[in-house]
Design a protein around this nucleic acid. Structure first.
Length: 592
RNA sequence: GGGGCCGUAGCUCAAUUGGUUAGAGUACUGGACUGUCGAUCCAGUGGUUGCGGGUUCGAGUCCCGUCGGCCUCGCCA
């Protein structure tokens, strides 16, 4: 090693020892006859001193040092003089009196320095990621990430899971997300797909007798990005045989409790609370409700049906819903202009036609531009239903059920953030279970799997599978942390007949099913144990555990919203030769 | 594919209703200084206001297009 100690290591007990440190120049303070350098590595900072006793030559050399130079410095560990101890540094009681300096690499004209107080724009940070990753916050996050993954691996190892790798080059399936494709040179005109998840492989592993499988798996989905979504992400993927839903959930409960204890020092009572999908949508309008605050949704459709107000009655009469919630004491926090903005938000983002609202005045009466359309008695009933007290702010959405879900979930999250209704450090874990098996796709005019086509229905729903697919509920479960989906899994179908039936419901004829999933259908007739599993989004776990607001900050080399790597310039065009070898020609749209 | 915000010195930002020579902090360069730790003090360098077009006597500012970053709806089994 070029160093004897790290920059976070030296203490008073090292007094008078000779030590050699390597690191980056964090800052320098030149007083003429004395120069101070804070030398930094990922372990900490140590003050290095070049003084008169260092000699003219060394002092002049020290004077050339600038931020982010990489140096190797040897000196004597010395107690700091009275009154110059720096309590902010772990090494603040000592300093290194330099005797030799080697500049390993100068840093010239850095576009930004990791120590500057105002963070540069994110494009610059991504373009020069090596500078950004030197920031202590980024280093702490990546260390936290490493610990989370180790915690997960230890936990599953302790529970007799086997870590098995599955292929990155696999078969494309049109179901689900868009695939990233890799052309095959050997099979000209054919393509591999990068895995959206190791789903089928892990099921096959269950049929192969590895009854507890785990993998830290990289997954790829070619869909548009979000603050919490990257095209390339990492899952903690696991699968178990001879289990029921409770077994998987209990296993993950134990993991969550362990991670919360080890990393955050939190004691999480188990079992984690559960609610069904139907309950979540009814109470919160979303399948990953944020339970850190209240403002639960309340149905008022029956009251709306009695109103003269056409918007309400029309919606009630046509099978829609009128629902809302009460933002306690928020009436004076929202001006007419603010409410106009809320209205614009729900109209633009959730296809609402408008937003109904009331402020509760000092007498407990509901005040609003639309109040004149209601009898006083009916207003009183709305007030009772919504538990209205003076100063409350009530919002209501009148529309088709799915629109009211979107609108009210959006408003609930927005108001909770604006009104600071929760402690940003609070952690809330819960399960949402029994998702619908299917969603109806209006464009394709067919049923599509809500989770994936291998999901088992609740046993009692097998008979309604064909008669009324919308009623069938799945043995599916999502882990929700602070209103964010942190993982999801299902019990799988382990019966060939049911699997074929589900493929059929999804509009897949037998030939297609055989072609795409023949190997699975075969395996389901050759000794398939009941099995199920789950995948946890590791990036989101880290993000939520670290209290970060976007997923890029917990990934070393993330993509931008347009799915590009600004540092390397990926994706890029390739040589004509490479294309010819693959038998590919780029079309006009791509050339433009 | 739709909606929104942003782009001014290396970096972070300012610039009145469209009006004189586009400013500040920081970084950088030179100088002073033996105890600082956001060192301090003095002086200086630094600009195609992302790019292209338009409106105007006059555009950083208004309009259109385009590139890039972010947020979001759709999308994400």
């Amino acid at each position: 090693m070029l160093r004897t100690h790290t920059c976070g290591e030296l203490r008073k007990s090292n007094q008078s020892q000779e030590a050699t440190l390597c690191g980056w120049v964090d800052s320098y303070r030149d007083h003429g006859g004395t120069i101070f350098i804070d030398l930094r590595d990922r372990y900490g900072k140590t003050q290095v001193v070049f003084g008169p006793e260092s000699g003219v030559e060394l002092l002049d050399q020290g004077r050339t040092l600038r931020s982010e130079d990489v140096i190797r410095v040897t000196g004597i560990v010395t107690d700091r003089p009275e009154g110059t101890i720096n309590p902010k540094l772990g090494t603040g009681e000592i300093e290194l009196r330099s005797t030799a300096l080697e500049i390993l690499n100068k840093c010239e004209n850095a576009p930004f320095v990791p120590t500057q107080q105002d963070l540069p724009g994110e494009d610059l940070r991504l373009r020069h990621r090596y500078l950004d990753l030197r920031r202590s916050v980024m280093q702490d996050t990546l260390v936290q990430r490493s610990r989370i993954i180790k915690g997960m691996r230890d936990y599953f190892e302790d529970n007799d899971f086997v870590d098995i790798e599955t292929p990155i080059l696999g078969r494309s399936t049109p179901e689900g997300a868009r695939d990233y494709l890799v052309p095959s040179r050997v099979h000209t005109g054919s393509f591999f797909a990068l895995p959206q998840s190791p789903q089928l492989y892990k099921q096959i592993l269950m049929m192969s007798g590895y009854d507890r499988y785990v993998q830290v798996a990289r997954c790829f989905r070619d869909e548009d990005l979000r603050a919490d979504r990257q095209p390339e992400f990492t899952q903690l993927d696991m699968e178990m045989s001879f289990v029921e839903m409770d077994d998987i959930i209990n296993m993950i409960d134990g993991l969550v409790a362990k991670l919360a204890k080890d990393l955050l020092g939190l004691d999480i009572p188990l079992p984690l609370p559960r609610m069904t999908y139907d309950e979540a949508m009814e109470r919160f309008g979303h399948d990953a409700p944020d339970l850190r605050y209240g403002m639960e949704l309340i149905d008022c459709t029956d009251l709306a049906a009695q109103a003269e107000f056409r918007v309400f009655r029309g919606v009630a009469d046509s099978g829609g819903r009128v629902r809302g919630f009460n933002a306690k004491g928020a009436a004076d926090k929202y001006s007419r202009k603010d409410i106009d903005q809320l209205t614009e938000y729900v109209v633009q983002d959730f296809k609402a036609k408008g937003l109904a609202w009331f402020k509760v005045d000092a007498d407990g009466k509901l005040a609003s531009p639309i109040a004149k359309n209601f009898s006083e008695e009916l207003l009183g009933q709305f007030a009772d239903r919504l538990d209205a007290e003076p100063g409350d702010f009530l919002v209501l959405s009148a529309d088709q059920w799915d629109v009211t879900c979107g609108v009210l979930n959006g408003l609930r999250r927005r108001l909770a953030a604006e009104l600071k209704l929760y402690d940003p450090k609070a952690m809330n874990f819960s399960w949402v279970v029994e998702f619908p098996m299917f969603d109806y796709d209006d464009e394709e005019k067919r049923w599509v799997a809500m989770h994936h086509p291998f999901t088992a229905p609740r046993p009692r729903d097998i008979e309604v599978l064909e008669s009324d697919p919308s009623k069938a509920r799945a043995l599916a479960y999502d882990l929700v942390i602070n209103g964010s989906e942190a993982g999801g899994g299902t019990i799988r179908i382990h019966d060939n007949a049911i699997q074929s039936k589900v493929f059929g419901l999804l509009g897949m004829d037998e030939t297609t099913a055989q072609e795409r999933f023949g190997f699975l259908l075969d395996a389901l007739r050759l000794g398939a144990p009941p099995h199920g599993g789950i995948a946890l989004g590791i990036d989101r776990f880290v993000m939520l555990f670290a209290g970060l607001e976007n997923i890029r900050d917990c990934i070393a080399f993330p993509k931008t919203q347009r799915a590009a790597d600004l540092m390397t310039g990926a994706p890029s065009t390739v040589d004509g030769k490479q294309l010819r070898e693959l038998g590919l020609r780029v079309g006009q749209a791509a050339e433009k």
